[in-house]
């Protein structure tokens, strides 16, 4: 076999069982993502991109086809192995930031390290470094509800980075932010991709945000309709 890509998705199907019968969401998706890529994923609501992201993030399993991440066939892994992948290979950044409201910023950032049993001193040190990296060095003891949305998203990025992942999955990370803050957040992603070679898959509705990526994949009705350059005309029919 030739050199395998970082992510290989072949003939991926996903359907949900509902009372009204099975509803297909993904229909024969084929995609290869190399390490160090920065890919934007677009598509109208209901096109299946969120489902696809969940499968990429090992939060959900495909109904058919295969998904190989970093050489491992995800469909064949047990629950604990999947959790391990989420913990050590993947970092999530969500639209709603999803910080734990009762824990301070340092504890929030250090949380993934708790689940891979890193000692306390090491946790504090690495979480502190990550906060430093996203420009929130002195905020470790603050609570999430005391800082702005942009700052919360930066904390979330720090949390995603703390366990040195190779892949960051960002699901509309700027959806709740203003234009200026969005640009700051996207610059962080661009820097992570360029300087540290972290693979980034980004779901967005906004062409300006997608423009940060180097590759654009568009989903319509559970199928890939565009895969290639980040072209404005491809994005034009997007609903903001």
């Amino acid at each position: 076999m030739a050199e395998q890509a970082f992510i290989v998705v072949e003939h991926l199907y996903k359907q949900y069982e509902t009372a009204a019968g099975p509803v297909p969401v993904l229909k024969d998706v084929n995609l290869r993502i190399e390490a160090r890529e920065f890919m934007a994923l677009m598509g109208p609501s209901g096109s299946g991109k969120s489902t696809f992201m969940n499968i990429l993030g090992c939060l959900d399993l495909p109904t058919g086809g295969s998904y190989v991440l970093n050489g491992q066939d995800v469909g064949k892994l047990g629950k604990d192995r999947l959790a391990h992948l989420r913990n050590e290979v993947i970092g999530f950044v969500f639209q709603g930031f999803n910080l734990l409201p009762r824990a301070n910023l340092l504890d929030n950032v250090a949380l993934p390290l708790v689940y891979c049993r890193v000692a306390k001193d090491e946790r504090v040190r690495r979480a502190g470094e990550m906060l430093e990296k996203v420009g929130l060095g002195g905020y470790g003891n603050s609570m999430p509800n005391r800082i702005s949305g942009g700052q919360q998203q930066r904390v979330a990025i720090a949390r995603a980075l703390v366990n040195r992942p190779r892949l960051i999955l960002a699901d509309e990370p700027t959806g709740n932010l203003d234009t200026k803050t969005s640009a700051e957040i996207m610059n962080i992603f661009a820097r992570l991709n360029a300087e540290e070679g972290i693979t980034i898959v980004l779901v967005t509705h906004e062409p300006d945000i997608a423009a940060y990526a180097k590759r654009l994949v568009r989903f319509v009705d559970g199928r890939v309709t565009h895969d290639g350059a980040v072209l404005r005309e491809v994005m034009m029919d997007e609903q903001p």
Partner: peptide
């Protein structure tokens, strides 16, 4: 959130 960042069952 915890599951997404790697908590096992």
């Amino acid at each position: 959130i915890r599951v997404a960042i790697g908590a096992r069952e």
